[in-house]
């Protein structure tokens, strides 16, 4: 089966604290922060969007993979905030990493799991021998309406994965998906902000799909939680993540590294791929990782991955997730509103 040849992450420099958002809307910052297990979130600069974040992450992934970008035969960008409704982000990424023109490219959309759906598509193309390398990106500049609960978490960031057979740094053992028609969160065409079902996004949506996908891959592989060194789930907030880990029987130690929502918020399509990257940043050869994404609508993709010794040669070639998280600059709500285009200009 195919593996990860390289990966790269990009997180914008700016952050806003939960307490600053709570100050504007008159909420109790402590209740919000403790309830969501989120302290601050990343904010894109006014000249950043899903295309720029994808390009930055993709350039890092190509550098870490140490491959000729002309050998990339497929580029898929998964996001729910593509800059254009019609005109792919993937062509911008392909051109900017020097992969054009001999490749197939498309944009994926499946709420927060479009990035992992792209990874699966690349695995298929690589394993069938149609392409040598595939580039899958999960990135978002997530939208949350002013005053909505989502505003505390909807953030920006992305991760890119080069999938191939040769010189992998980690190998996929298997992938398993669980998908149903569940309208827990959606954004209609032309609308600027999504709507969600509040508590309905929990048990029948996030938990049902994440847990079913995890159990599905355990059954397929004959594995169990104690067989894994690390686990990462989609993280709309820290609370859901920790609860999913506990329900499945994972320890804090297994789930700690992949949990980034407290520091950067919910990067939507970037969330699981960035969490997986944070694990690869510290993993040792032989470590077994379980990654489970979740996309509203709804579905989960689970991946069982084993790290190999190539990780040591490639790890330090581009910035690690922890470095990108530490490098930050706080903005207040007014600057955040300007950066996110929430102000009506003359």
């Amino acid at each position: 089966m195919a593996g990860i040849v390289g990966y790269g992450v990009y997180i914008p420099l700016y952050r806003i604290k939960v307490e600053e958002i709570a100050r504007v809307w008159g909420d109790d910052p402590e209740i919000i922060s403790k309830g969501l297990v989120v302290q601050e979130k990343s904010v894109p600069a006014p000249d950043e969007d899903t295309a720029t974040i994808s390009v930055e992450a993709a350039r890092y992934s190509v550098k870490r993979a140490m491959i000729d970008p002309q050998k990339i035969g497929a580029v898929y960008v998964g996001s729910e905030s593509h800059p254009y409704a019609v005109k792919p982000t993937a062509t911008i990424v392909a051109e900017a990493v020097g992969a054009s023109p001999n490749l197939t490219a498309a944009d994926f959309e499946f709420a927060c799991k479009a990035g992992t759906a792209g990874m699966q598509a690349c695995m298929g193309l690589v394993d069938s021998g149609i392409v040598e390398y595939g580039l899958a990106v999960g990135a978002d500049t997530a939208q949350g309406a002013p005053g909505d609960a989502l505003e505390y978490t909807a953030s920006a960031g992305g991760a890119a994965y080069i999938i191939g057979h040769d010189n992998t740094l980690a190998d996929f053992e298997d992938t398993y998906s669980f998908t149903t028609d569940t309208p827990d969160f959606y954004r209609r065409e032309g609308k600027p902000y999504p709507r969600h079902g509040g508590r309905f996004t929990g048990e029948p949506a996030y938990f049902k799909h994440v847990i079913a996908a995890a159990k599905g891959i355990f059954e397929k592989l004959g594995s169990e939680p104690s067989d894994y060194d690390h686990v990462v789930f989609h993280q709309p907030n820290g609370k859901f993540y920790l609860k999913a880990a506990k329900k499945l029987g994972f320890s804090d130690e297994q789930s700690r590294t992949g949990l980034l929502a407290p520091f950067i918020g919910n990067t939507y399509s970037g969330a699981t791929p960035i969490g997986l990257a944070a694990i690869l940043d510290i993993a040792k050869a032989g470590d077994r990782i379980l990654a489970v994404s979740y996309g509203s609508g709804a579905g989960s993709d689970a991946f069982s991955i084993i790290v190999n010794e190539e990780i040591e040669r490639k790890r330090d070639t581009v910035p690690k997730v922890s470095e990108l998280i530490e490098k930050k600059k706080y903005v207040d709500y007014a600057l955040y509103a300007k950066f996110k285009g929430k102000l009506r200009m003359a």
């Binding site: 000249d47 295309a51 720029t52 900017a96």
Partner: peptide, 24 residues
């Protein structure tokens, strides 16, 4: 770095390209 340079209004083409940031 790779950034948005300009947009032709809210329904026009978006131009992307290089900008630079200070190395740290």
């Amino acid at each position: 770095v790779f950034r948005k340079i300009r947009e032709e209004g809210d329904d026009g083409v978006i131009s992307y390209g290089f900008k630079f940031r200070i190395k740290k």
